[in-house]
Structures are given as structure tokens and as C-alpha cells.
Write a protein that binds this DNA or RNA. Structure first.
Length: 224
DNA sequence: TCTTGATCATTC
DNA sequence: GAATGATCAAGA
């Protein structure tokens, strides 16, 4: 673990210094072994970059860089720079939806400031061959936040009515909700239609790949 | 080909 | 069990 950056500028500067490295090179510097594939190490890339940048020890309900209020997200992209996957945001709080407002929601907090690090990750590339890209320190524009809030409010409306189990990944223009658990049979307490708590499948918020693609594209437009 | 729903490892 | 980090893999 490297020393934690004390300013956003230092963090960004350090992240820029990693651009162009292969993950194998980065892992070598950190004395971390490289898995042959990510099937059993799905969080390996994210943890590697956290380690390289000196993210705080994983503490619940706090950004990766707690003092800076910055969340770190790696973003697998193809050769054209488009995200290959959606981006995990946070778990959905299903039990007491009436007590949650957008202004203080976990989603808004998590996405307040995000350091996106694209990683060139064609499926044909082994984990070690993948390349760290130029980082992007993002804060939602008013328009982006409006999109996020609108989706979030829609999801919350459904959840408050006790129909969280009926939400599918097709709901939400930029912010979707998908199952998230150890297995499909995982269950957590959530509000049911009767107003009582019942056991339902745990879920999480994800940013659609199209949304993160726009974020990347906008930063590219600004930097050229 | 793209997305959705499912799954994996680790920590506390 | 819940939250962290995500990608896999089957079906549309």
C-alpha cells in the first residue's frame, strides 16, 4: 500500500503516472501476482489500482479516498474507448426506503466525485496485458445529476410501494438495478407490498455502460 | 452482439 | 450476512 494522497491534484498526478503501464508491470511493482484470468478474481483490477494509488483501507460507507471525498472506479474499455461493462455503484437499501432522500442517498454520495481509470481490456487480452489509461476526475454535471436523480426517484418509488422484487435491469435510463449477491438464492430483508418486511433478492445500483461512455467522451472532447 | 441476471473473492 | 471490488455467461 502506497501513502495516501493528500490533495486531489496529487491523486490525479499519481494516476496519470500509471497511464501506459500494463497491469503486469503495475503488479510487479507492487509485488502482486497476476491471475491467469479474472473468472475467480473479478475485483483484482480494482484492488490493484487502489493499492497503487494508496486508497484508504476499505472502510464501509466511506469513499476510497476518504479525506478527499473521492471514489475510485476502474472502467474496462475496448480498443475504441467504450466501456465493456456497467459500473457497480452501491447496494440498494431495501428495508426502510421511506427514510431515504436523494440528497443524502448512498448513490449520490458515491458518485459525488469519482476518479475513473479506464483499462484497455479486450477479451483477447490476459489480465497482465491490459493497459492502464488516462484517469478522469469526474463530478456529475447538473444534467447528469438530474438524470441520476430521476432514475433513482423512480426506483425508490417502486421500492417504497414494496415492489423492489419487480424491478429489472431494463428500468432506469442511466442508473439500473440488478441482482447482487453470492447466488441467486441469496435473500435480504426488504419492504413488501403489505408494508411488512419480507425476504427478497439483494440488489445493487449500476451505471449503464452508455452513461459512462458519455462521461469518457465528454472529457475527451474537453481535453482536445 | 448486447444486456440481463448470476456469480466470485475477500473482509468484517 | 452484508458490503467491498467487479466480470462472467447465457439468453434475447
Amino acid at each position: 500500500m502506497r501513502r495516501t494522497p493528500t490533495t486531489p491534484t496529487e491523486l490525479l498526478s499519481r494516476a496519470r503516472g500509471l497511464a501506459g503501464l500494463t497491469l503486469a508491470e503495475l503488479a510487479g511493482e507492487l509485488s502482486v501476482s497476476v491471475p491467469a484470468n479474472l473468472r475467480r478474481d473479478k475485483g483484482w483490477v480494482g484492488r490493484l489500482l487502489e493499492d497503487a494509488l494508496g486508497a484508504d483501507a476499505s472502510t464501509a460507507q466511506a469513499p476510497d479516498f476518504a479525506e478527499l471525498g473521492i471514489e475510485l472506479k476502474t472502467l474496462p474499455v475496448d480498443a475504441t474507448g467504450k466501456p465493456r461493462e456497467s459500473t457497480f455503484v452501491t447496494c440498494v437499501e431495501l428495508a426502510h426506503p421511506d427514510e431515504i432522500r436523494w440528497e443524502t442517498s448512498h448513490v449520490r454520495q458515491k458518485l459525488a466525485r469519482v476518479l475513473f481509470i479506464p483499462v484497455l481490456s479486450e477479451t483477447s487480452m490476459s489480465p497482465g496485458e491490459r493497459l492502464v489509461g488516462q484517469p478522469l476526475l469526474w463530478q456529475p454535471t447538473p444534467a447528469e445529476e438530474a438524470l441520476l436523480q430521476a432514475d433513482w426517484e423512480g426506483h425508490m418509488r417502486t421500492i417504497r410501494q414494496g415492489y423492489a422484487h419487480a424491478i429489472t435491469a431494463r428500468d432506469g435510463r442511466v442508473l439500473q438495478i440488478r441482482p447482487k449477491g453470492a447466488r441467486a438464492s441469496s435473500r435480504v430483508w426488504g419492504l413488501g407490498p403489505s408494508g411488512d418486511l419480507e425476504l427478497i433478492q439483494p440488489r445493487a445500483y449500476y451505471l449503464r455502460a452508455g452513461f459512462t461512455a458519455q462521461i469518457i467522451a465528454r472529457s475527451f472532447a474537453l481535453s482536445t
